[in-house]
Each structure stands twice: as structure tokens, then as C-alpha cells.
Amino acid sequence: MAEYQGKRENDMKTNLIINYLPQNMTEKELYSMFVTIGPVESCRVMKDFKTGYSYGFGFVNYAKAEDASRAIGTLNGLQVQNKRLKVSFARPSGEDIKETNLYVTNLPRNITEQYLEQLFGKYGTIVQKNLLKDKVTGMPRGVAFVRYDRREEAQQAINALNGAIPENGTEPLSVKIAEEHGKQKAAYYAGWQAGYNQSRGGDGLYGKKRTYQY
């Protein structure tokens, strides 16, 4: 048991999660960026399996813990296209990453992604945001998804903004945990576990995964 626990702790020191990936970044590009630090055992970008839509995050698992630490120090905050990467140790489980995706309705119809970031960004680190727009007119529908890095941040946003009327708004916001979060969470962990298994088996460097982005 102690040996197993030791392996888990060691894996946690080598497996990284990379948030804020550019929408069009491929796993090959992600791998090419991180392999400059040291040998990479697995590299995956999280995507929707049906549509191939990038979720905007991925996982990189190094062979050595010191390379993972160096990658954080070297690549965290790196500007890539219109995104600034956030590189940190992956958390394969834990209460703090559950219930982090918010479903927001009654937003002003003239809201921009910049204002959405400003409105919700003060309560924590936004990992993903998706402002839904009408397919015909291209105008915002007053609905958005906002995912935070941690559950406590999402809860702070709910406490502060649910029922509040934003600037230029006419009705109170509805801010709650997204109902479909369970499916997304399952996909998230399935992707992490696949990356974990792949790294342990040593077969292949590229997989399939990612997160959404705006």
C-alpha cells in the first residue's frame, strides 16, 4: 500500500495540466513545446469526442519530476497566440475541482467576452468561458458558461452575482452550477486517466483531448 501511495505521489509530481491553450493548438504542437524541457511520456489535448472542439486545456506527463517542475517555471505564463498559458501540477481528483462550471443566464444582449471576463474574473481564475451567440445574427443570446479553476471560486461568483443586475442589464442574473457538468467531469477524468494509463504503459505520445475556449 505504501509503495502504491508512493507511486501516486510521484505521478502527481510529473503530470501537468495546461490551461488556456489556443483553440487551434494540436497535440503535436503541445508536445513540441514541452519536450524542449525534457522527455515527455504522454501528451494529450482535451477535445469533445464528437465535434473535435477543443476544451482549451491538456495534460503533459514527464518522465522526471524535475522536468515537470522546470516546465512550470519556464512555460507558465508564456504567451502563445492570443492566450497566456497556465501550467501547473494536475490534480486527478479532489473536491476543489468539482462543481466549477457555471451556467449563466439573463446576461445583457450586448455583452462582450471582455466584459464577461471582467465581471467574473474578480472571483477567481477562469479556465474557460463560452458566450453563446445566435447562429443567424451572431448576437449574444444572454447565456454563457464560465468555468473556474476551483470550486470555491465558482461558489464565490454564485454568491456575488446570482440575482445581481449587471451594468447595462435590465434583469437579475441567474448563476448556477451547470447541470451537464457531470458529463464534462466524466470526460475530464477519463482523459486524465487515459493519459495516466498511457504514460504507465509507455505506448504513444499523442492522444486526444482538450477543453473549450472562446
Rank of each mutant, 00 (worst) to 15 (best):
K7T: 07
M46D: 08
R70P: 02
K50D: 12
L107S: 03
D149N: 10
A71Y: 05
T137I: 00
D67I: 00
F89W: 01
E66R: 09
N110H: 03
K122F: 04
N130K: 15
G6S: 13
P108F: 06
M33E: 08
A194C: 03
E27C: 04
K183Y: 06
A178I: 01
K135F: 13
W192I: 13
K83M: 15
V104C: 13
T74A: 03
I177S: 02
S32G: 09
R70T: 12
K176Q: 15
A164I: 02
I17A: 08
A186N: 11
E27S: 08
N19C: 15
S88C: 10
G94W: 03
Q198M: 05
E3A: 10
E3R: 14
K47V: 04
S174H: 02
Q79W: 00
P166H: 12
Y55Q: 13
R151F: 03
Q198S: 05
R147A: 14
N162T: 06
E9V: 03
E171W: 02
S32E: 14
P39M: 07
F59K: 08
Y148M: 00
G38R: 09
A187W: 07
L107W: 03
A63N: 00
Q193I: 02
G56N: 01
R200N: 12
L78F: 00
E29K: 08
N15C: 09
T26C: 03
E99C: 12
E29L: 07
K47N: 01
Q193C: 03
S93P: 02
I158Q: 11
T137W: 02
E9A: 09
S199Q: 10
T100W: 05
M12K: 15
E180G: 01
G195Q: 07
R210W: 10
N76L: 04
A90L: 11
R8Q: 05
E95Q: 13
L75N: 05
G138V: 07
E113R: 10
Y55D: 04
